[in-house]
């Protein structure tokens, strides 16, 4: 008993036949080999699985693959431009040492992009509040905040 799903992932058409209980994150990771989107918890709080669905940040562990039927999905892999040119947010994370083990990073970057889309010139407090859905255990957030500030300043 499978359902067919057709969606656009990182600008390319993708389709798969899935069990309805398959989560979107597993479609991305296991069937489309886009393993940059991570699973860090099972209660939808760590944000490591954050992707953009039709331009809005969502948690790919909190929705079924079938719910993304017809949608436009961007993952961390799709944020990188042609010739491996990183997105300004990715660049800012590197410049500011906003990552250590790298596991929360893709979700953090996707979330930070949403934050700036909604609020292009946030204060430090707004950045911190805006990232409450993403847990990082390594950086203490100090350099993540700096990275978002840098990306905002350059935009």
């Amino acid at each position: 008993m499978t359902v067919s799903v057709t969606l656009t992932v990182n600008g390319k058409a993708a389709s798969a036949s899935v069990d309805p209980r398959m989560l979107l994150v597993h479609l991305l990771r296991d069937q489309l080999q886009l393993t940059g989107t991570h699973v860090g918890c099972d209660t939808a709080q760590c944000g490591a699985c954050t992707i953009h669905l039709n331009g809005r940040a969502v948690k790919a562990c909190s929705m079924l693959a079938v719910q993304a039927n017809g949608a436009n999905v961007t993952t961390i892999e799709g944020l990188t431009g042609k010739g491996d040119k990183m997105h300004p947010m990715q660049e800012a994370f590197r410049d500011c040492h906003g990552l250590q083990c790298g596991f929360c990073t893709p979700g953090m970057v996707m979330s930070a992009c949403q934050l700036l889309a909604d609020n292009p010139k946030p204060t430090e407090a707004e950045i911190r509040a805006g990232l409450e859905g993403n847990i990082c255990r390594c950086t203490g957030y100090h350099n993540i905040v700096k990275a978002v500030q840098q990306a905002a300043a350059q935009a």
Partner: peptide
């Protein structure tokens, strides 16, 4: 409510 990802869904 929740966080920005939760609010988008």
């Amino acid at each position: 409510i929740g966080d920005q990802m939760v609010r988008n869904q």
